[in-house]
Amino acid sequence: MNFQNTAYAALLASSLLLIGGCDQAEKAAQQMISKTAEAAKQAIDDTHKAAEQALNEATGGRLIEQEQPEKERKESSHTI
């Protein structure tokens, strides 16, 4: 009977250690995911900024002329 009590106590203790280890692993994984998400966001922001700068340099600082609205195109075609 003493052996059974010892076995149950060992099983309970190992279960508690396993659960505690799982909680620590989950917290570590959440921290890693958070840091990875922040790094990805920063990379996207940096890429966006570099693309805007390259576009600005390519256009000489001017905005690219947008297409005329449909109404203005029709009016200009009538005057020709």
Rank of each mutant, 00 (worst) to 15 (best):
19 I>C: 02
68 Q>I: 03
62 R>E: 12
25 A>Y: 05
20 G>T: 09
22 C>I: 15
71 K>M: 07
4 Q>D: 07
43 A>F: 02
17 L>A: 09
37 A>P: 00
34 S>C: 03
58 A>R: 06
23 D>E: 06
3 F>T: 12
2 N>C: 01
23 D>W: 06
64 I>M: 13
48 H>K: 13
50 A>G: 04
40 A>R: 11
55 L>T: 03
76 S>K: 09
72 E>H: 01
1 M>A: 05
28 A>Q: 11
31 Q>P: 01
21 G>W: 08
46 D>P: 00
58 A>E: 11
32 M>Y: 11
69 P>N: 15
26 E>H: 01
74 K>T: 07
70 E>F: 14
71 K>E: 10
66 Q>H: 08
69 P>Q: 06
26 E>I: 01
14 S>G: 07
8 Y>T: 04
44 I>D: 04
65 E>N: 12
68 Q>R: 03
42 Q>Y: 06
32 M>K: 13
22 C>G: 05
41 K>R: 12
15 S>G: 14
58 A>P: 02
14 S>F: 03
60 G>V: 05
40 A>F: 05
43 A>I: 00
24 Q>M: 05
45 D>T: 14
35 K>W: 07
75 E>L: 07
63 L>P: 02
53 Q>P: 04
38 E>T: 01
46 D>A: 11
49 K>T: 15
44 I>G: 01
55 L>P: 01
15 S>C: 11
8 Y>K: 11
8 Y>S: 06
57 E>K: 04
61 G>V: 11
3 F>I: 12
77 S>P: 07
69 P>L: 10
27 K>R: 14
62 R>C: 12
32 M>D: 14
65 E>R: 14
31 Q>W: 05
15 S>H: 13
55 L>E: 07
80 I>F: 06
33 I>L: 13
37 A>R: 10
59 T>H: 02
18 L>E: 10
8 Y>A: 10
61 G>M: 08
7 A>I: 15
18 L>N: 10
38 E>C: 00
61 G>C: 08
21 G>N: 13
30 Q>F: 04
24 Q>P: 01
54 A>T: 04
16 L>F: 06
58 A>L: 15
38 E>V: 00
3 F>D: 15
18 L>A: 13
35 K>H: 11
44 I>W: 02
62 R>I: 09
13 A>W: 09
55 L>H: 04
80 I>P: 07
75 E>A: 01
17 L>S: 12
26 E>V: 00
63 L>E: 10
38 E>G: 00
41 K>D: 02
51 A>V: 05
61 G>Y: 09
14 S>D: 14
19 I>G: 01
9 A>I: 09
26 E>S: 00
68 Q>G: 00
24 Q>A: 04
41 K>E: 05
60 G>S: 08
2 N>P: 00
30 Q>K: 13
19 I>K: 04
25 A>H: 04
47 T>R: 03
3 F>R: 15
52 E>C: 10
34 S>N: 10
31 Q>F: 02
79 T>L: 12
44 I>T: 04
6 T>C: 07
38 E>N: 00
3 F>E: 15
27 K>T: 04
9 A>H: 09
61 G>P: 08
61 G>E: 08
